[in-house]
Design a protein around this nucleic acid. Structure first.
Length: 554
RNA sequence: GGCGCAUUGGUGUAGUUGGUUAACACGCUGCCCUCUCAAGGCAGAGAUCACGGGUUCGAGUCCCGUAUGCGCUACCA
């Protein structure tokens, strides 16, 4: 056992006592049942889609219970910190509406970055040292690695326990000797380490869980040669969550195995237990098997993927809520955004994160936006990711509005062409003359099966007799006449019944014109195209084909 | 290896004290509509409820075992 005087020399002299912190962080004044929960991302890379999943669940639970949701940056592994992560986090939090209710300037329960909380951890590490629940360990990483190898070879449990825990019972004299030899040390938890026992607790999602109790003397404070000396996740969790007055620990399922450690730490620290809810991770198919959505392998695991591609946050969040509580998948976007999620409805198996499903939800989402909402969302995206498009849109807002309004006519079935804003340009760029490459080659493969000479004939006749009719039917009648003149069936139905009687279907003719006008095999109806680009531009596009023929025959 | 979690059609789930042909949504296929693609309408395929035992008159639902997948077993979180 180390003396109190000696323990004090290991820490800053003015380090507060636990009682100081416990009154410094009062209970929150919240209604009964209010949930206070936190999201704790580590700045070791981009924010993971699974993080948004957990965070949005937590924020929803907190807000619907009259509680509070906050983000605590868990940056205790400074070696693995990736520069720029925090900036990316901030952008992603904002985009997905999971920003923290609390921060260092509006709340007294901070700081909200663990690297700024070192004194807290030190106070409690010292306390555990004083009451014998912790000790100094001088084992080097090399020694620990060798030990693990031996354990593996001997087929015994790996870890720092029992007779393997060499520093567990060092005398104060031995400890002082090593300190004088300038050895670095960690502070380890002195686990109960008795005969194997079972431990049980209730998970709010899974119900009762029972497992073997922990016997490992896990590290509490990392190596003494670091500054500041930071805790491991386990210790940070056991200090921060009680003191930040969290009432629900919501985290990934990978933490289930660590609960026995956490329970022991809470007990040793004298804190009341906080209910746990472990969320099943988002999964993905890899061939025939499924695995956790991985930062390294899957670009849809990176939330920047959605921001960059222009998936509206509302669509992604709706999908994520549906994965958490399937009831939400059946709701309208509005209902799902305003309803309370529940832990008991969360599935226990990891759901497959299916990009195809997301795309379809996103299509629905964009389709139900009003013209103004859609335009605003598109412009916001384009300013960052397609400045050229943003510029063209801003210079012709009436046209931009018309494009969305065309697809949103009341009473008419709603088109669902766009799943993400990066699809806007390929689908609708054709409306902007500056973004449209003229098609002048009649043998372009997009015209198939209509032959090049027929393409030219159709283009020439169409342009020569073109009238910019204001009525949809009257306008399309031109195409029908054009088809009839060249032996094509005037309706698709007639061609279908007797294909042998015709040179082709009306659809061949309309598609030839479609390609000339839009360059696309799929486009909005031609009448709309004609009126959105205007007569002059229409004729310019169609005549590009006839000119090409003229120059070729010279 | 040890420990833990999971397993209902392609996907997400429902199936709350065991009780008739396992339900819903999305997806998929075909047809209709149709100038293309969507949207819409109609019809359809698709699950021996992971596998094997057991309890029971009767099990997706309870019990045991097995398999498979995932996770933890770090001075990573």
């Amino acid at each position: 056992m180390l003396t109190a005087e000696f323990i004090n020399t290991l820490f800053e002299a003015e380090l507060p006592e636990p009682s100081h912190w416990e009154s410094y962080y009062p209970q929150r004044n919240l209604p009964p049942g209010a949930i206070v929960t936190r999201f704790g991302p580590s700045p070791t890379g981009f924010l993971h889609t699974g993080g948004v999943y957990v965070a949005t669940l937590g924020k929803n639970l907190a807000h619907h219970s009259g509680g509070s949701y906050f983000i605590r940056i868990e940056d205790t592994d400074q070696a693995r910190e990736v520069p720029g992560s925090r900036e990316q986090f901030a952008r992603a939090f904002k985009y997905f509406d999971i920003e923290s209710d609390e921060n260092d300037s509006n709340s007294k329960w901070g700081p909200y970055e663990q690297s700024n909380r070192a004194p807290l951890y030190h106070t409690y590490a010292r306390e555990l040292l004083r009451n014998g629940h912790a000790y100094l360990c001088f084992c080097t990483r090399e020694e620990l690695a060798q030990m693990t190898e031996k354990q593996l070879a001997a087929k015994v449990q790996t870890g720092y326990y029992g007779s393997w825990a060499r520093c567990r019972n060092l005398s104060q004299a031995e400890v002082m000797n090593r300190l004088e030899a300038a050895k670095t040390y960690t502070i380890r938890f002195r686990s109960p380490n008795g005969p194997p026992t079972r431990v049980a607790y209730v998970d709010l999602i899974r119900g009762p869980i029972e497992q073997q109790d922990n016997v490992n003397d896990i590290v509490l404070l990392k190596s003494s040669d670091q500054s500041p000396r930071l805790p491991t996740y386990h210790f940070a969790h056991a200090v921060d969550d009680p003191l930040m007055r969290v009432t629900l620990v919501l985290r990934g399922e990978e933490w289930i195995s660590s609960v026995p450690v956490h329970l022991q730490l809470f007990k040793a620290l004298g804190f009341e237990l906080i209910p746990y809810a472990h969320i099943a991770p988002l999964m993905k198919f890899d061939g025939a098997s499924r695995r956790k959505l991985s930062k390294r392998k899957d670009n849809e695991a990176d939330v920047d993927f959605y921001i960059r591609s222009g998936y509206p946050a509302g669509a992604v969040l709706h999908y994520l809520r549906g994965l958490a509580n399937s009831r939400f998948a059946e709701m309208t976007f509005e209902e799902s955004a305003s309803s309370a999620l529940s832990l008991s409805e969360c599935g226990v198996a990891g759901p497959i994160f299916d990009l195809v499903k997301l795309e379809s939800i996103s299509r629905e989402f964009i389709a139900q936006l009003s013209t103004e909402e859609a335009l605003k969302s598109l412009l916001t995206w384009a300013r960052d990711y397609d400045p050229e498009l943003a510029e063209k849109l801003s210079r012709n807002l009436p046209l931009a509005r018309r494009i969305f309004a065309n697809e949103r006519q009341p009473g008419v079935g709603q088109r669902k062409d766009l799943a993400k804003w990066e699809e806007f340009r390929p689908a609708y760029g054709l409306y902007f003359p500056e973004l449209f490459p003229l098609i002048s080659d009649p043998s372009d493969s997009r015209f198939a099966p209509v032959k090049p000479d027929m393409v030219v004939k159709l283009a020439k006749d169409f342009a020569d007799s073109y009238r910019h009719e204001e009525d949809k039917e009257a306008w399309f009648e031109q195409i029908r006449r054009l088809a009839a003149v060249h032996g094509f069936a005037p309706t698709a139905g007639q061609y279908k019944k007797n294909p042998e009687n015709f040179a082709g279907s009306i659809s061949h003719v309309s598609n030839a014109i479609r390609i000339a006008l839009t360059g696309l095999r799929q486009s909005p109806e031609l009448f709309l195209v004609a009126h959105n680009i205007g007569e002059e531009e229409l004729l310019r596009r169609v005549r590009a084909l006839t000119r090409s023929e003229a120059s070729r025959s010279v």
